[in-house]
Amino acid sequence: MDKNYPYQWQPARVRAEFFRLLPISLFVVAFGAAFGLAAVQEGLTPLQTLLMSVTVFAGASQFAAVDMWGTEVSLIPLLAVVFAINSRHLLMGASLYPVLRELPPGKRYGVLLLLTDANWAVAAQDYQNGRKNLEVIVGGGAVLWLAWVIGTGLGVYFGGLLKDPQALGLDMVLGCFLLAMALGGKKSPRTLVAWVVASVAALAAWRWLPPNIHVVVGALAGGVVGFFWLEPRQGGQPREEQEAP
């Protein structure tokens, strides 16, 4: 084992995490189908739409992008929107760094290729509970990516099947999933204060700042609470390593 990179990668766990996120991925298929339909309605060809889902793999930003489609696309505003919506990845990647740094850089950035909301939420929750779980980023990411691509294909070719995903409540899948993850984590007084600060900041940013940056504003505001309010040895690695058999 490399001393500098002590993370013990478990291939079997990658497979387990693939199946753990399979149920939520079924909902992602429906989301993908809604995207595929929206994209071909805006004039993208099926292949272009699939290519976008395969390479971008970030639903909300893809919806926003095809929303701005026309015979011409203003590139800078489009990329700015894509960046703003996806800037939450910056914080997600940073939040996993204490674990990621235990992997060699090549593998580290390979793992991050598949980083998205749902698998990150599981990894972050596990880390708060003292478990290092990067396998979920890869295994869970793979099933989420597959679901997103398959869903896009279904929407492109059989879009009429799912005209109104909202009526079925499918737009709430991610929100409910993330909420369940948040409530499943460890809750200390510090976390609750961070949440209140984050909520207020996110709402204020959502109302008064340019669109699509409220997530980053809220999360950073919550982080500031942690910066000034340290908890003695909570969720850190040293304790976990002592407890490990």
């Binding site: 939040s95 980053v216 919550g222 942690g226």
Partner: peptide, 20 residues
Amino acid sequence: RIESFINAMASSVLIAIIVP
């Protein structure tokens, strides 16, 4: 201190998505 910032930020990401 940085780790504390990261941890508080991580759990706040979810809230900042959900509340709005």
